[in-house]
Design a protein around this nucleic acid. Structure first.
Length: 443
RNA sequence: GUGGGCAUAGCUCAGCUGGUUAGAGCACCAGAUUGUGGAUCUGGGGGUCGCGGGUUCAAGUCCCGUUGCUCACCCCA
């Protein structure tokens, strides 16, 4: 018998979530939902599984290799979605006639990538996307940045940096340097600057990408520019002068930083960084990456950008768009390392102790009353020793316990115990809600 | 996909150059305390040493394979 037991295990990169982890995850998802909705984004959903041809060739060779792909029972070539943006492109093309443009949607759902795992990198993970399509207005790029900012703040972070760049600015720079035909390689090397350093990037650009030493040096010179966005842009503007796309990128970014300043966003948190490029091929304009100052190694936790032809492979309708994606599970991995995760493993605040098994009806009635008042409440199911029930309340992280036995029922009161301060007092049913609320709102 | 490190109780780990019945702390269970948690004390349960194979009189310890975790490359949330 025992040799036939199946080993309980999950696949590499796939994980179970215990209540403590799941409560934290759901909290982050609720926060993302709330922030997105506060800007007018609407929820959508799409299938996990798509025709492989819908997903293939949209994010570059790398993403094709990482697809979980197989043949279904109807002999169809199918694959699990790799991100939420490509399915959204298909969605937009398919339902174009039903959408009112500009269309703003959010989508919180798991995606799958068959790559090697690392801390904060899994094969199944949750993305929280939001996008605005049907307009190429810079206001949407700016709003996207603001959503990222407000989202990070709502999630409880104050020490984060959103790095902003513009593909056209980069292209303009490369054009002026005569590197436009090698832009993919140059940008890919440049993107590693923060990680491997200027020397290694120079080596890669000259040896692998085929740039001259002078070209590489010029690129790095701009990537190294730091300081107030306006000043950096002045220098970049001079360098791209004469390049139409470069000038466009500069003017877009000028407006972006000006509007951010005017709307009161912290300048420290939003920085122009000419070195970020992003790997996904479909970005054509603004690019965003968000780093935690206290755990930069975990990588970007919220990235995105503008793509001016996202649905081009599905429809002739021009559908420019801009958006970003919060990597929920990566963020959680970072928060775990920084000890920022809440520890409660209950979703209820109040435990009604089962003092006397004969009084179940009274306890259940009290529980319903509290729930009707909006207080999540659990009734302990058996009349076990009080010690056991109090231990249960303590370990699960309840805020308050309500106890009532013969004495209390005779006196017409409930004993309400604040489990954090260990204080207890008898209150009547009329005073109960006020007392509970006082306990719940105490720090 | 490539390379390095790791894998011993629920968790964090110890176990020297292979040698008798594999340990600690925390957690768990019971009691001290039959109307009250987080502290202390006492006692207790729990491990085919990730899995498979090999070398050996003898393997947690050495070798090979495999799975998982982790770090780096690549790429990215």
């Amino acid at each position: 018998m025992s040799d036939s037991l199946i080993k309980p295990q999950t696949l590499k990169g796939f994980r179970d979530y215990l209540p403590e982890a799941m409560i934290a995850r759901e909290k982050l998802m609720d926060t993302a939902r709330r922030v997105y909705r506060s800007y007018g984004f609407s929820p959508i959903d799409t299938p996990a599984l798509e025709y492989a041809e819908v997903l293939l060739g949209k994010g570059g060779d790398e993403s094709d290799k990482q697809l979980f792909r197989f043949t279904d029972q109807g002999d169809r070539d199918v694959a699990l979605r790799f991100d939420l943006t490509v399915p959204f492109a298909r969605f937009a093309a398919q339902h174009f006639a039903e959408l009112t443009l500009p269309f703003k949607r959010y989508h919180i759902a798991p995606v799958w990538r068959g790559e090697n795992t690392q801390r904060g990198r899994y094969r199944e993970f949750m993305q929280c996307d939001f996008d605005t399509i049907g307009t190429d207005a810079n206001a949407s790029d700016i709003e996207t940045l603001m959503v990222i900012h407000d989202l990070m703040e709502a999630l409880g972070f104050s020490r984060f940096t959103i790095r902003v760049n513009h593909r056209q600015l980069l292209n303009g720079l490369l054009e002026r340097l005569g590197l436009l035909d090698r832009s993919v390689g140059v940008l890919r090397s440049l993107d590693k600057l923060g990680k491997i350093g200027a020397e290694a990037v120079t080596a890669e650009m000259t040896e692998r990408v085929g740039a001259t030493a002078e070209q590489a040096a010029r690129v790095l010179e701009f990537a190294a520019l730091r300081g107030p966005a306006g000043e950096v842009l002045d220098q970049v503007a001079a360098a791209v002068a004469g390049s139409e796309r470069g000038e466009l990128g500069v003017s877009r970014l000028r407006e972006l930083f000006a509007v951010c300043a005017a709307s009161g966003l912290s300048e420290e948190r939003i920085q122009l960084d000419v070195a970020i490029a992003r790997g996904l091929d479909y970005y054509t304009g603004t690019i965003y990456e968000t780093f935690l100052n206290d755990d930069p190694k975990i990588g970007s936790v919220c990235s995105g950008g503008r793509y001016d032809n996202l649905a081009g492979l599905f429809t002739k309708q021009p559908l420019p768009g801009v958006g970003a994606s919060l990597g929920l599970d990566r963020l959680l991995a970072a928060m775990e390392g920084l000890n920022l995760l809440p520890t409660a493993s209950t979703t209820a605040d109040v435990l009604i102790v089962c003092f006397d098994g004969e009084r179940l009806g009274d306890y259940m009635r009290l529980g319903r009353m509290l729930r009707n008042w909006g207080v999540a409440t659990e009734v302990y199911p058996q009349a076990r020793p009080l010690k056991k029930q109090m231990q249960y309340a303590d370990r699960k992280g309840f805020r308050a316990a309500i106890l009532a036995g013969a004495e209390e029922f005779a006196a017409g009161v409930w004993q309400v115990k604040d489990l954090r301060s260990a204080t207890q007092q008898p209150v009547t049913t009329d005073e109960l809600l006020t007392r509970i609320q006082a306990i719940l709102s105490s720090p």
